[in-house]
Each structure stands twice: as structure tokens, then as C-alpha cells.
Design a binder for these strands. Sequence first.
DNA 1: ACTTTTTTTAAACATTTGATTAAAATACTT
DNA 2: AAGTATTTTAATCAAATGTTTAAAAAAAGT
Lengths: 202, 202
Amino acid sequence: MDQVLKADEKLTTEEKIKEAARIVFLKKGYAATKTRDIAEQAGLNLALLNYYFRSKEKLFEIIMMEKVQQLFAAIAPVFTDKETSLNTKIDLITTRYIDLLVKNTDLPLFVLSEIRNNPESFSKAIHVDDVLLKSHFVKQLAEKKPDVNPVQLIMSLLGMLIFPFIAKPVLQAAGAVNDKMFEQLMGERKELVSKWMKLLVR
Amino acid sequence: MDQVLKADEKLTTEEKIKEAARIVFLKKGYAATKTRDIAEQAGLNLALLNYYFRSKEKLFEIIMMEKVQQLFAAIAPVFTDKETSLNTKIDLITTRYIDLLVKNTDLPLFVLSEIRNNPESFSKAIHVDDVLLKSHFVKQLAEKKPDVNPVQLIMSLLGMLIFPFIAKPVLQAAGAVNDKMFEQLMGERKELVSKWMKLLVR
DNA sequence: ACTTTTTTTAAACATTTGATTAAAATACTT
DNA sequence: AAGTATTTTAATCAAATGTTTAAAAAAAGT
């Protein structure tokens, strides 16, 4: 007998639905996603979504929280770490974030769009200000650059890291890049952003 | 008689609908917007939307093109101008963009989200690569920094400028800033980004 | 082997939603 | 003022959409 199974054939029905929901929600966003889209993507009967997750909204909340975590958990530990130097933090944040986003290019636009559409539920789930404004990273920045609001520096770092992934659809639609070229650009971008950010805090 | 009229009372019905559509589409995006939301926002009968614009989609296309223009027209002339120096271009792009976005904070997230949802129609309407990749600005960057892909520098500049407006809902949800504080941050950011970008190309 | 529980399916339901229609109201023309 | 065209309204339609239901199928328990 053939031991090889299609990737999702060994998944439970519940996992198949979540996997399909990840794909469709991330591509189209909550409002544009039809429950029938998810059922079709999963190759399952429509009613199973409600059987396992009660409602479209509940299913979405699960995926959304997962993705918010993914986006914040990748850098939060580096932000708060008290041991590593400022320059090492910059290196770590840069490489980790680009590595994560190259594998999940539509993650930033999805998460940031959906937070805009529903800021309340997000604010309860994640404590951004603890990570962002009270982190060790911020203290290090404030110490090194006492004349500059550290939030400005963080917005620049995250902007340089995240913005290309938000602008990717525009570049692609313009025919300026394809997937392969984009990944290559992001590969070389790790060194650049890291270098540039160190320049800003010098 | 009272000469003073409420702002939109002197507008034509058609303009009232467009104005309402701008507000609702920008806040919620195409898919989440109901034609009844727009009618209510405009204080008009639902059927008038179809009377004046035939369909939700047609109305959306008008608003969308308007906003894409707004987002690109603000910097395109500076990108292509052959007279101004590199440093002056950086100053102009920075101040113009932040000034524009402060008055239209949800413009970037709206435009970039909707382009992702419908890249084809966008690519026909705007020739990004002409402005971005063949512009005089790019040539100046390539000349000044021959060892760096100019696209990398542009992504950093636009990232530093645009990203804060995309992240604004997150910062607000986290209680890190309010509208007033954000505008103040962006005011002081003009100088900073301008200075930082010149540092990167030095 | 039989019973019970769990999972899956096809069909249907109730709302929502974009759009249309026909009549009423208003504005314009002569 | 009368007639015509334009604009607005309330009601309605048809399709889409999230959810439920009841029966069938599969799995688990005894």
C-alpha cells in the first residue's frame, strides 16, 4: 500500500477547516470571505464549519489571534530581553522579521487591516504598549539617542521591515517584481536594514 | 433668511453620495461596506445610489481611482522632476507625504488593501514602474549609491513615511497614542525622516 | 452483533444585500 | 398654467450568505 498521503489527508477535519480558513481569510480578509469559500478550499461540507466552530466569526477570531501572535511573538522577546546589546537587538529583529515575513507575505496587510476593522477586540488580546513602549529596547534607544522619541525610531525600523510586504501587491501589479525577485530583494534587505538602523542610532 | 448652510447642504445629490462613499469605503473597505451604509451616511434614499452610479462597484471604482491618484500624485511629480537635487527631493517627498497623510490617515491602508484584493484593475490604471523604477529620483539614487539597489532605498523612505499611518490603529487600540498625539508625532517626524534618509544616501 | 455516539451530508431557512420598479414629488420648459 | 422631464421615494425582487435541521453514514462502545 502507498504510505504517502497528501499533506492534509492526515489532518483532522477540524484542522482541515482551520487550514483552509487561514488561506482564505488571509487572502481576502474577513468581510470578503464567504463560508462557502472556506468549505470549498477545505474540500468539506459547508455545515462542518458550524459543527466545529459554531460561526464564521468564531472561526475568524481563532485564526486572527493566531496571526496576531505570529506577528508580535516574533519580535516581542527581542524587544524585552535585558541582556542583548542594542546592535544585537537590531540584528535579531531584522533577520527574524524578514525571515518570518518572507514565508508569510500577506500576514502584515491582513493583521493590520483587520485590526483597523475591529480595534477593540484586539486591544484586549495584546498589550502592545508593554512590548513597545516599556520594553528594554525602548530604554536602550532612549539612552543612546536622548534627543529623539524612541517611538520614532521604532516606527522607522518596523516601517523599513514591514512596508515592503504591504507594498508587494502594488509592485507585483505594476510588473516591477515577481515572487522570486521579491524574495531575493528581501534576502539582501536583511543586511541593509540592519546597517541602516545602526546608522540612525549612532 | 439664514445664509449659513450645513456643509453638504449645498452639494448636489451626486456629490453627497460620493462624499458619503468616500467616508464609508475608506473606513470599512469595499467588501464590508453595504450600500445601505452609504445611503444612511449621505442621508439619502438607497435607490439614488443606483440612479446616479448604476452599481456599488461602479461607485467604488470612482472613489478608488480618486484615492489611488491622491496617494501617487502627491509624490510622482517630485520623483520625475529632473531639476531638483537629491536632497531637495527627499525634503519635498517627506513633507508633502506626511502633510497629505496627516489629513488622510486611513488612505494608505485603504488603498493598499484594495489593491491587494484587485491587483489587475489597478495595474491598468496606474503605471507605477514608470514613476518608481524609471524616475529621475531612482537615477539620482543609483548614481549616489551605486552599490545599493535603489528600490531598497525607496522602500525604506516610503516605509518610514507610510508605515506609521498603517500602524496607527494598532497604536490607538493599545492606548499608546490618541489623535492629537499622533498628529504631533507626525509633525516632528518630517524633520526626522528627511534627516535619516539623507544619512542613508550619504 | 447490536446499540449508542459522533461525524458528515443534502436540503432548507431566515436574513442580508445589491438592484429594480412604478408611482409620487419636484424642477424645468414653453 | 399646463405639460414634460428629472429626481426622489417606498416597496419589492432575486440572489447571496450564514446558519440550522433532520437524516444518513461512520466510528466507538459493549
